[in-house]
Design a protein around this nucleic acid. Structure first.
Lengths: 163, 163
DNA sequence: GAGAAATATTTCGCACGCTAAATAATGCCG
DNA sequence: CGGCATTATTTAGCGTGCGAAATATTTCTC
């Protein structure tokens, strides 16, 4: 997890914002992992179980998209979950390239036993803000994200020219 | 990277904030990785090289703390960097338990060739905000972080009682 | 000053997470 | 119909990332 805060002593507001975002993100992962551990799952496995519980069967690609990971990554996660008897793979009848991932009864039972959604603590913390604050936060963060997106595009163009 | 946005259709402000934070974080990692790739480095390796360039020699523990990773993780990163001749390990004379990590000339040269700090794009985007917006952002994010910390403490206490 | 507790690093085993290449099945176009 | 690009998934190889145990060294304590 690279974060590279090079001079931790005198921190500008900007660096503090960075720091806080990194804290919030890593903490949310840590929480997911901790919740998962209680059910003998890993973080990503808990995420998968909860998604399948709420949405139903998904193809591997759909699942990958949901959890923002590559297909090859999810293949591995599903391999291990299948080994543990939490899910099964089922080839689609319509398109035999597609594999659906389905919770087994064991997987479903386990999902039900974990009432808290992975991001719950994080979400609760955000709900402690007033509606105004939330809107303001969203507005400002949105602006930052927009600038990052632009910079990324510019960066991409520069390197395409040979950066 | 578990993110579990279960219903992507109707998103509340809260979920959008979450989404944006995740976007900003993952994007900042992607950018580090892309910058690194141009110098035949990995993301964490670039981070290490830049930290050592700016701060000087660090013990493995100090380095771990900087990049917010476990010692065992950093041991691996340094192993590979040493193999590539970018850094050397040197045992401390005062405390022979301690290992200092030092850039080789090759490593230093490489660091100098990468002028952009890993988080530069991200930092620039934040600097596009007005001073007021930055303060406001910091204030609100700080509040969120405080609530998360409290929730985490409460959570910890609950599980200690047998959660 | 010897044994115990503490500290710094490494080793081990496992689970992501990525890219590139391989495999399998579908659709398209002449 | 036959080949060919496209799409879905898996395989292979590598680099993190973590926790627990092992190792080496220092410090503390009696």
């Amino acid at each position: 997890m690279p974060s590279a805060s090079v001079s931790p002593e005198i921190k500008s507001d900007v660096d503090q914002v960075l720091e806080t975002i990194i804290y919030l993100y890593t903490e949310s992962r840590r929480i997911t992992k901790e919740l998962a551990r209680r059910a003998d799952l890993t973080g990503p496995q808990l995420t998968v179980v909860k998604i399948l519980e709420q949405i139903g069967d998904l193809s591997l690609s759909e699942l990958s998209e949901r959890i923002r990971a590559q297909n090859s990554t999810v293949t591995g996660i599903i391999d291990r979950m299948e080994r543990e008897g939490l899910v099964v793979r089922e080839r689609s009848k319509e398109d035999r390239r597609v594999v659906y991932i389905r919770l087994t009864p064991k997987g479903r039972k386990l999902a039900e036993e974990i009432p808290v959604e992975p991001m719950e603590i994080f979400r609760n913390a955000l709900q402690c803000l007033s509606a105004n604050e939330t809107r303001e936060l969203l507005k400002i963060l949105g602006k930052v994200a927009r600038h990052v997106r632009e910079a990324v595009r510019a960066e991409g163009a520069a390197s395409a020219r040979g950066g």
